[in-house]
Amino acid sequence: MAAFSPILAPSGTRPRSQFFTAVKANFIRDGFPLQTWVAIGALLQSALLLVLPIRFAIIPSTFYLGTSLIDGLAIWSGVRANPYMNGVVPGKVSAQFPGSTTPSQNPIVVIKLAARSNHPLGVFHPHMRKISTFFRDMIEDLDEHSEQYDYLGACSYLANERATANEVMILAYFRTYEGLHKWCHVPGGVHREAWSYWNKDIMGRGKAKEGRLFSIMHEVYQVPARKWESIFVNYHPTGLGATTYKIDVDGQTKWISPLVDASRGVLRSSKGRMALSEGNDHDIYGDDAFPSQSKR
C-alpha cells in the first residue's frame, strides 16, 4: 500500500504548538461567575447615568448590541466571511504519521497536564499566575527542542464543570515515552523548575495549608500501534491533527501536518483506522455522507 498523502502543504519552519492560539481573555472571563460580570456591567452603566443624560448614557450598550446583531446577520447571509471558519479543513480527514502505509502504524504517547485554583482569588492568585507561566515556558521549551524529546505538539483546554476557576489542561503528544520522561527529568529543565516551585513554594514546609488550595494532575497514556484512531469532520486542526512532523523534501527540511483524506478507503471507518478492517464497515448503513473528496 502507498503511503498516505497529507492534504496540507508543508511548511519551511516548524509551526508553534496549537497551545499558543489560546485566547487569554477566556481565562480572565473564567475568573468571575456570570453574575459578577453582569454586576460589573450594571455598575458601569450606572456610572454613565450619573454623568450623562440617559439618551447618551445608553449609546455604548446600544451601539455594541446593534453592531453585534448586524455583524451576525452579515455572516449568516454571506455578506461577510465567517471568521469562525478560518483554518477549518473541509470534509472528512484523519491524522496519520507521515510516511505510514497502514493506519495507526506508529505508537504514540499522550500526556494530560492540568492545574486548578480553589483559592478565592482563583486564577489571579500569584501561584496560579506562576503556574500559567510555567505551562507556557514548558511548551516553548518543547517547541524549541522537539526532536530531542520526540515532541509532536500540544493544545490547551478550559473545563466547564464550575461557574468559575475551572481546570486548565494541556494535552501533549510525543513519539515515545522515553522522550517525554527525558524532558520531565532533564537537570535544570523547565519542568524540573516547575516541579521544584510546587514542592518548595506551594507545598513546602509551613505552606501546605494554603498549598492545598491549588491542584495539579497528570495522566500519561502509552498507546501501541493500531490501538488509536482519529477523525475530524469539517474541523480545524486540533489535538493529534495539530501536531507537526519533520520530513525531507528534495534535500530540504520541511514540517508537515498528519491530516490525510479519510473519505475513502480503509480510513472511512473506526475499525479501518485501527487496521482492523478494510474500512467498509459502514456500507450497510447506505450512502456515505462524505463521498471521496477527490470526486468533488
Rank of each mutant, 00 (worst) to 15 (best):
W37Q: 01
P237E: 11
P224C: 05
F19A: 12
A39C: 05
V93G: 11
G91C: 07
P237M: 07
S94M: 08
L171W: 01
L158R: 15
S263E: 08
N86L: 12
I284D: 04
A47L: 14
H191K: 09
Q96F: 04
M1L: 13
A95V: 09
T253P: 01
P120K: 09
M274K: 14
T133I: 02
R264M: 03
V88I: 15
D143F: 05
Q105P: 02
S5L: 12
D283G: 03
A47I: 14
I58V: 15
E278P: 00
I284T: 04
S132V: 02
R129L: 14
F124I: 00
P187N: 01
S156N: 13
D283I: 06
S11E: 15
E140K: 12
Y235A: 13
T21V: 08
R80T: 05
L49S: 11
S270I: 10
L50Q: 11
D201E: 15
S5C: 06
E140L: 14
N160K: 09
A25R: 09
K271M: 11
F20I: 06
R212H: 11
L73S: 03
F290Y: 15
S61R: 12
V51P: 03
F232S: 12
R264P: 00
G99Q: 09
G279D: 03
N160D: 13
S294V: 14
A57G: 07
F19T: 09
I284L: 09
P98M: 04
Y151V: 07
G153Y: 11
S5V: 14
I216T: 14
S132A: 14
I231Y: 04
I247Y: 01
G211D: 02
L69Q: 00
E219F: 03
Y285V: 05
